[in-house]
């Protein structure tokens, strides 16, 4: 079921674009990791405030709800680049060469169709909560301390747009592999055997283990 994949690099335009986009994707994923850390600190402050200073953090739940999209969406393209979104690869794992690239191209194209629609839909969701004429541009607010919701809602179409760029690059990569009948194409996640995946998985969890 799918973990990490090796992604090959070379000097081609595709590979250079891949690495350029990767820098953006990495930064966004790190942002998401820092948000997790922030969540932890927020809870410590909230619990400490309530139990030791009898002053609960106002709007604690509202702030968590604001942080969640940051954690949930920002790393989506990075994970797609690495082939980290899970799938059932019993069938694709058996394919080699052109049939494999064709299958990858088709499923990637389907994802792109979905995500283009999701950019539209999540943008509309954002737009309904945003009003230039209103105070704090807000037309939708959180329940407790009435935080404007549009910044959190905007994160979805932004992250999904980056994913769409990544999917375009992958379509290019798989298309190129299909056309040239390539063995090891650049800029796309390559299917690994279960053993390779497990080794990679084990590698990540044991880095720096004491």
């Amino acid at each position: 079921m799918a973990g990490h994949s090796a992604i090959l690099e070379d000097g081609s335009a595709l590979s250079r674009l891949d690495r350029a986009l990767l820098r953006l994707e990495r930064a966004l994923a790190l942002l998401s990791g820092l948000a997790v850390f922030g969540l932890m600190v927020l809870a410590v402050v909230s619990v400490g405030g309530r139990n030791f200073f009898a002053s609960p953090l106002p709007g604690y739940v509202d702030w968590i709800e604001q942080a969640m999209p940051l954690i949930a969406f920002m790393g989506i393209a990075f994970t797609q680049r690495e082939g980290g979104h899970i799938r059932m690869d019993i069938l694709v794992g058996q394919l080699r060469g052109r049939p494999l690239w064709a299958a990858e191209f088709v499923t990637t194209a389907l994802i792109l169709i979905l995500m283009v629609l999701m950019v539209w839909g999540s943008w509309a969701h954002f737009a309904r909560s945003f009003d230039f004429a209103a105070p704090m541009w807000s037309r939708d607010s959180s329940m407790d301390i009435a935080l404007p919701l549009w910044p959190a809602k905007l994160l979805a179409p932004v992250a999904f747009s980056v994913l769409c760029l990544r999917l375009c690059l992958q379509l290019w990569g798989f298309g190129r592999a299909f056309a040239g009948n390539l063995e090891r194409p650049v800029a796309v996640p390559l299917v690994q055997s279960a053993a390779e995946q497990a080794a990679a998985e084990a590698e990540t969890v044991s880095n720096g283990e004491g």
Binding site: R50, S55, P56, P58, Y60, V61, M143, D144, I145
Partner: peptide, 26 residues
């Protein structure tokens, strides 16, 4: 004073006015 109470909207504001700590949740 200092009582944390689930109260939304105007009721929350009212509780806040007498020193309670209003919290909203569904």
């Amino acid at each position: 004073e200092g009582l944390s109470v689930r109260a939304t909207g105007g009721i929350g504001a009212a509780m806040g006015a007498v020193g309670a700590v209003p919290t909203s949740m569904s």
